[in-house]
Design a protein around this nucleic acid. Structure first.
Length: 963
RNA sequence: GCGCCUGUGGCGGAAUUGGUAGACGCGUUAGACUUAGGAUCUAAUGUCUCGCGGCGUGCAGGUUCGAGUCCUGUCAGGCGCACCA
């Protein structure tokens, strides 16, 4: 049977034709450059930013634009309030999927990436954003990554001064070395070194270069890295989840490698302190605090028995010095060699081999107690006793000093170890029972320190005595003692690690570095950017070098300052260039600065642009970046701030984390071994298998049976057992939105069916922006209906009806209630309640049969942030020429809400009973009297007396009764 | 284990500073208009009860004239960190 869409034949001229309206205005906005903005000192600035997307091959689903819509509404709102709003968009274009695709197909990642970007742009354009596309950035374009390379070089040429808590030029440090060695320096470093000026001056360039690496903010370091053999590259800590790679889920192992690193740890304290100055959610701040992991403690020196060698341990429980019964070293610790005795050598080596063979994942899942005795002992500086030194994987090389003093009575891990290897346990806290488990709590009175009948070691006639003190006092006393007698020092430790900054991949920013006989040198700034070379194959070379090893033109001609063929390398004037590339976070760490001045080829951004735009006022993005991008960006910005490039210490003033949109999958139920499908409500009568069905052929959980038959060839002859109403009902579940679940809903499809304004409205109406929620197309009709009602409110008989003159008090009340609500709600990102208020208001005005121009003018502007297309159309139908984007946000007038009478609820003992009305301004005494008179007339109150009357003006009168 | 967040109808979710819990939307039910309805409009819709009136914000207490909101405990779910000394 031929289906005819009747709407094509029935001409209803002024129906809400969203397709026409949206196309028309989207084109007009582009033609008239409505969203192109520039610095304007006559207006206050406001900078709204979304985390820019990685353009994946799958395109956008309805979840992606959620944050963009939320921030677009805010940007438009701010603009209507008179701000000069920067609302840019770009692409985080480097990423693994494009490279993996390149390896499989030989297609250059740039081709794939650009195609994906085009698709993203096409989809984004349909939603009606106010992005200034003139400022678009792509991390993979040379004009952009020039400044990524430039920043890296600045970091290479800087060190971090702990005293001033800022980055300084490396020349300052070199001058200090030349005159005083590293005496009296307090700077961030990889490991403590001691040398004199004479030593420094006597060293050759290679040695100097090596020593400087200990201090540079971007440095080459031998570090334990997360190596993913399957991906052929190293990964950052936040790219490893449960011991497998975040992308692909491949196993990851620990490996020592030479890598470029960024000394993020130097900024630990500033990263921590900065959190107090920004408006981010508590949970994300807390996550960052955890990640930075500040802990105050004490470092204490222990002498290795029989030698003059000391080693250092870090503890937060300095009060437990008298409960130490053994020491433990991390298996990777350099000290292991030093303390292993000849007798224990074989045992220790066996153990180290065992630990190396265990992957991170195995260690995490199987947490058994293992360890080996080294053969040596350490002298406890307080008791003078010898404690055996053990080696165990439960001590981490990367934290503290990689060595601990074990107090089994008061640390559960030490306790488990002591029990397993039969080591002594000495309780120190009064009343602590350690026969079954350790007493880890940090409260109680210290005893046994020193033990009765024993005495502590004397230093200058003084010895430590902690008995009777609280744990807090004991820690403080020990710290003071340690400092005074030079047994150790008070120390703040951070868990935050330096970031590993190189990847063994092709599709990333190349390092502007060449190697002059083993010494890394920077390619001169004026030669930047050095562009990613062409390669034939995107895989590592046969000799195991990174993919850039395949490049044939990848050598630096120092004299002529240009890139030349590898074959010319002579290590005299022509040198090899770095084969590593930068990680994903390199390009995404400072992109917000580049948006301020995206076409500048003289500087990352001009001083004028930096001073005008300052930093991002509102940043919108997912909370999954809490320990990655949001830390790196803050670090990067602080570094640029030290250089005077960035004018604000924190890059993102306010952060909103939008929730994820989950998919809502639909299921059909196939009766086993048949091609018959049974409706959800009857499935329990059969033995069935649920099968995912494309949500796009299901409407309100009712399956379009014909579309299902056409969906896949195997269902062509499917049969159905329908329910009593003759419908096929599908089951449903909330799952991740993904292709394999057939629950992906594209924004394009929604825009096609309902329009962009409806999509924008509905995405915001779904619930709070910050909350994760499943997508459910079923509810969208309500929003679409609202826009139709809005349209019909404006338009009667083919034209807009707008009568001049004052609006009635009722109209003004409805309108100004809305203005107040929406203005307040947008500011708090409470968009769903704003939209509800719109619905109420339009219903109210429709009931009032309002035709007032005053009301319609205001309404068109108020809806503009949410639904810019319909707003623009209505604005023009009202006779305006400009764009609604630059209209003035309606002013709220309190006096329109005032009423003659105030309605008050009379309550007894807090329970509401009946309402009463009083003229505005009635004093409390009168209200009280009137309410009491009412009370006396109520029969059921006999036997009670009035104890008290509470009047909440304008709200309620509460009469408190007693029997 | 530690830290953070969240628990409200059939569903998504409202509820200013403690002041008539359930706005708004979906869904459902009834009616109207229709050849028709997966269109539109009107009304009802927390729950028990014929009604009066009870009971209701995960659970148990507490503070208060009055608690979804504040406090204590507890349970459930989510997120983050995790052998961090």
């Amino acid at each position: 049977m031929l289906k005819i869409d009747l709407s094509l034949f029935i001409s209803k001229d002024m129906e809400y034709n969203f397709r026409e309206i949206e196309q028309k205005w989207q084109k007009s906005w582009v033609d008239n450059k409505i969203y192109q903005i520039s610095e304007d000192n006559s207006k206050p600035k406001y900078y709204v930013l979304n985390m820019f997307p990685y353009p994946s091959g799958a395109g956008l689903h309805v979840g992606h634009p959620l944050g963009y819509i939320a921030s677009d509404i805010y940007a438009r709102f701010k603009r209507l309030q008179g701000f000069n709003v920067l609302n840019p968009m770009g692409y985080d274009a480097y990423g693994l999927p494009a490279e993996q695709y390149a390896i499989q197909t030989g297609q250059h990642p740039e081709v794939t990436t650009f195609a994906n970007i085009d698709r993203y742009r096409e989809q984004l354009d349909k939603i009606g954003f106010s992005f200034d596309w003139n400022r678009e950035v792509r991390t993979c374009s040379p004009g952009y990554y020039k400044w990524t390379q430039w920043a890296f070089q600045k970091m290479f040429n800087s060190f971090f001064c702990n005293k001033e808590q800022k980055a300084l030029p490396i020349e300052v440090l070199i001058k200090h070395f030349e005159t005083e060695g590293n005496l009296g320096l307090d700077v961030a470093q990889s490991e403590p070194l001691t040398f004199t000026a004479e030593e420094w001056n006597s060293w050759d360039d290679k040695k100097k270069s090596d020593v400087l690496m200990n201090y540079r903010i971007a440095f080459l370091g031998e570090t334990m890295v997360n190596w993913c053999p399957k991906l052929g590259t190293v990964l950052a800590n936040d790219e490893v989840i449960d011991g497998v790679s975040e992308r692909g889920g491949y196993p990851v192992e620990q490996k020592k490698m030479r890598q470029w690193c960024l000394r993020v740890s130097a900024y630990s304290q500033r990263l921590l302190d900065g959190l107090d100055t920004i408006q981010w959610s508590d949970s994300i701040k807390e996550t960052q605090r955890n990640w930075i992991g500040r802990s105050e403690g004490t470092e204490v020196e222990f002498r290795i028995d029989g030698t003059n060698d000391y080693f250092t341990i870090f503890t937060t429980r300095a009060d437990t010095m008298f409960g130490v019964t053994f020491m433990v070293l991390a298996p990777e610790s350099d000290l292991v060699q030093k303390v292993t005795t000849v007798e224990q050598k074989a045992e220790v080596e066996k153990y180290i081999k065992y630990v190396k063979g265990r992957t991170e994942r195995e260690r995490m899942i199987d947490r058994k107690v293992t360890g080996v005795f080294s053969g040596s002992y350490a002298i406890n500086p307080f008791t003078g006793e010898k404690n055996p030194i053990w080696i165990s994987e439960y001590v981490l090389a990367g934290y503290g000093t990689g060595a601990i003093m074990a107090v089994p009575a008061h640390d559960s891990r030490d306790y488990a170890f002591a029990k397993h290897f039969n080591l002594p346990i000495i309780p120190l806290i009064e009343g602590a029972d350690v026969s079954e488990e350790s007493y880890d709590a940090k409260e109680g009175i210290v005893s046994n320190s020193p033990a009765p009948g024993k005495s502590a070691v004397e230093y200058d006639g003084e010895s430590l005595m902690l008995n009777g003190l609280t744990i807090k006092e004991a820690i403080a006393a020990t710290k003071t003692f340690v400092k005074k007698h030079n047994i150790g020092r008070v120390k703040v430790n951070y868990r935050l690690r330096d970031a590993i900054f190189s990847r063994q991949r092709y599709w990333g920013e190349p390092f502007p570095v060449y190697y002059k006989n083993g010494i890394p040198c920077m390619i001169p700034e004026e030669c930047l950017p050095i562009q990613l070379p062409q390669v034939e194959k995107f895989l590592p070379t046969e000799t195991g070098e990174p993919p850039l090893g395949n490049a044939t033109v990848w050598a630096w001609d120092e004299a002529n300052k240009k890139i030349v063929a590898n074959s010319l390398i002579d290590n005299k004037t022509i040198f090899p260039i770095e084969l590593y590339t930068m990680p994903g976070f390199a390009g995404s760490s400072a992109y917000y600065l580049r948006y301020m001045d995206p076409h500048n080829d003289k500087a990352l951004l001009s001083t004028e642009a930096a001073n005008y735009w300052q930093n991002v006022d509102l940043y919108v993005g997912g909370s999954e970046h809490a320990t990655g991008h949001l830390i790196y960006s803050r670090f990067w910005n602080k570094f640029l701030y030290d250089l005077g490039i960035s004018v604000k210490e924190e890059p993102f003033q306010k952060l909103i984390n939008q929730g994820m949109i989950q998919g809502r999958s639909n299921f059909v139920y196939r009766i086993k071994d048949t091609n018959t499908f049974v409706s959800f409500d009857k499935k329990d009568e059969y033995d069935t298998t649920p099968i995912h069905v494309d949500v796009n052929i299901v409407s309100a959980d009712v399956l379009d049976v014909e579309a299902f038959k056409a969906w896949r060839p195997e269902y062509k002859n499917a049969e159905f057992i329908l329910n009593d109403e003759g419908k096929y009902i599908c089951g449903w579940a909330v799952e991740k939105m993904s292709k394999s679940m057939f629950n992906v809903v594209n924004p394009d499809m929604i825009v096609e069916r309902f329009g962009a304004d409806t999509l924008r409205l509905y995405e915001m109406f779904l619930g709070p922006v910050e909350q994760s929620k499943p997508w459910d197309t079923n509810g969208i009709d309500g929003c679409h209906r609202f826009l139709k009602k809005l349209w019909n409110f404006f338009i009667k008989d083919d034209s807009v009806v707008a009568t001049d003159g004052d609006a009635t008090p009722e109209e003004r009340k409805a309108l100004h209630t809305l203005i107040k609500k929406v203005t307040g709600d947008i500011d708090q990102f409470s968009y769903n309640t704003s939209i509800a208020a719109f619905m109420v208001c339009v219903n109210e005005l429709t009931k009032l049969k309002s035709t007032s121009r005053e009301v319609k003018e205001a309404l068109a502007v108020l809806i503009a942030p949410f639904c810019p297309h319909i707003a623009e159309e209505l604005y023009h139908l009202l006779g305006h020429d400009g764009t609604v984007c630059d209209a003035k946000w309606p002013a709220f007038n309190e006096s329109y809400l005032k009423e003659d009478n105030m309605k008050m609820m009379v309550a007894f003992n807090g329970k509401a009973r009946f309402p009463m009305e009083f003229p505005v301004g009635t004093d409390n005494a009168t209200i009280e009297k009137a309410a009491l008179e009412n009370e006396q007339s109520a029969k059921w109150l006999e036997g009670f007396t009035v104890a008290k009357v509470i009047v909440v003006p304008g709200k309620m009168i509460n009469i408190v009764l007693k029997k």
